[in-house]
Amino acid sequence: MKARAFSYVRSETLADAYAAFAQAGDASYISGGQSLVPALALRLQAPELLVDLGAVAEMHGVTLDGDMLRIGGLTRHAQMLTEPLIARHAPLLAQAAPHVAHPAIRNRGTLGGSVALADPASEFPAMMLAMDARMEIFGAAGTRLVPADAYFQDLYQTALEPGEILVALHVPSVGPRHRWAFDELTRRRGDYAMVGAGLQGLFEEDGRIEHIRIAFFSVAATPVRVKSVEAALAGRKIDAALIAHVQGLIDAELDPAEDEHLPPAMRLHLARVLLGRLLQTVSSPT
């Protein structure tokens, strides 16, 4: 339960961090360390060099630029609950945050670290999909923005190339016609969810859905949208019949893996229940 020895460097710029990583060959970045440090202790990972991103200025802070909220990658989970700009412009993150691990973990864990790791059972990566966020990535060719739909690729695999850094998350601000909801089903408080989901949609004045994005987690190798459900909801007003109809689409959308603790049929059942609850929640204004 002790990490293998490694070297350590604290970089103050993205370029320095990128160069240090490239030079080492076998390196890992560390931000909050709440997933990485246990992985080091268990020797699931044993890099030769740890590059600490904690002092990189561009990765700190939350700012609003027009309709886009930029959340620095080093923003801690606990700040999702205290940062006024997040409460106002990206409320789905504030709603998800109490479900992420335990309070002391949330004091250290970072949003960028969570989305860079892309654990398929984690809350925040799925919320990036639901909110249609863009990932600000620093690499050899400078900085680029990758939409969430193109970012999550496979189990722990994202659009991040080796050595690239997830600098910030860009989240479209919600307006008065947006509604959103988050929930998850866990065996114990703070545990990984058996099934979880978040949704965010734009609603007409009369309550009809203009468009909606629904992202599930803990159901596949990556967080996933249920696009046939989203399409079936577009232009419609939520009622019991519509909820029952889209619940019926879940089985064709999700294909959970075999799991000795949770058979696929039960996971699908839980996903249908969760979808129903979330749609019920947004059937009246948030």
Binding site: Y8, G33, V37, A104, I105, R108
Partner: peptide
């Protein structure tokens, strides 16, 4: 292993001393 770090509780086993 919880300790107060800059005013909030953290797991000291999940923080490297250098951090």
């Amino acid at each position: 292993c919880l300790v107060m770090m800059d005013g909030v509780p953290v797991h000291s086993c999940l923080v490297l001393a250098v951090q």
